[in-house]
Design a protein around this nucleic acid. Structure first.
Length: 280
DNA sequence: GTACTTGTTGAACG
DNA sequence: TCGTTCAACAAGTA
């Protein structure tokens, strides 16, 4: 499930693979993937344009085109963007299910957008309107931005004294990009029980949350994300961080840190794993 | 057939 | 009006 590290991985790979490439044609197999634009208009605006750059905001992948339009792509749970350097490689690819969009580049390479559950979307908007879109979503700060300091994190927390820490970490208006998996990994690493309220946290615990938040996200980015469910990077490779997850999906298994047994609860409607012994 | 998965949205609440 | 919480929804898998 693409959260910040997965989208960041795709962003980095696409900047290497498709920047400055010219889109010759787009094949649209499932029109409902396009948000707020008709198939004809989408083709008219996108075809013949060059890729200027690829960015990320929260879990949105932003592809900037040469004509001052941008694609804002959300992969939701099961979206994939797969790059192939030529049509033969694509023909040889084993899993061709759930293919909804194909971007063909002038040099023969292609980018394939798949999504088994069809939850994701591609929004076509003017580049100048991106900021307005982000404001409308009221995204919180980017945790990996250089100016995201401990002090800034503390100031954010003070605003939400009664919130439970784990659901708060995955609230996109509080902090952008964290999802269900990494938010519980952060709580485990900081030895904090997921239902703890912000006002009860000690300064040391807040520091532990901050340090582990940054650490886990950075490590997950370098491991090209976690492949829970069906996430793949643009080369069709699974993310390696999945083997380093400490609590997610480990119900009934032994805690890696103490002799406790990992338990699961529902918190804010989401499955949440924790160690009842060392997370306090 | 049923339960379960997550990110987002909109309704309902106080 | 606002902040917060919760159910619903998307579509498929076990």
């Amino acid at each position: 499930m693409p959260e910040l590290p997965e989208v960041e991985t795709i962003k980095g790979q696409l900047n290497k693979k498709i920047r400055d490439k010219k889109i010759k044609t787009v094949e649209i197999k499932l029109a409902k993937m396009l948000a707020g634009v008709t198939v004809d208009n989408f083709k008219k605006i996108v075809e013949g344009r060059k890729i200027k750059s690829v960015e990320r905001r929260a879990k949105l992948l932003i592809i900037n085109l040469s004509n001052n339009y941008s694609l804002a792509i959300h992969l939701k749970m099961t979206g994939q963007l797969l790059f192939f350097k030529n049509i033969q490689d694509w023909e040889a690819y084993k899993n061709k299910s759930a293919v909804h969009l194909i971007y063909y580049f002038e040099n023969g390479s292609l980018l394939v957008h798949t999504d088994v559950r069809q939850f994701g979307y591609v929004k076509l908007i003017k580049t100048a309107e991106l900021e307005a879109l982000f404001r409308k979503e009221s995204f919180g700060p980017e945790p990996l931005a250089h100016d995201f300091t401990l002090k800034k994190f503390k100031n954010l927390l003070i605003q939400k004294p009664r919130a439970k820490i784990k659901p708060l970490l995955m609230d996109q208006t509080f902090l952008a990009g964290m999802g269900n998996i990494y938010s519980q990994e952060v709580c485990w690493a900081a030895k904090i029980f997921p239902t703890r309220s912000v006002q009860g946290l000690t300064p040391q615990e807040i520091r532990a949350l901050y340090v582990n938040l940054i650490k886990i996200l950075c490590q997950a980015v370098s491991a090209r994300g976690s492949s829970v469910d069906n996430y793949l990077d643009t080369e069709g490779q699974p993310g390696e961080y999945v083997s380093r997850l400490k609590v997610y999906g480990r119900e009934g298994a032994k805690c890696y840190r103490c002799d406790g047994t990992i338990k699961k609860m529902t918190l804010g409607g989401r499955g949440t794993y924790y160690c009842p012994k060392c997370q306090i």
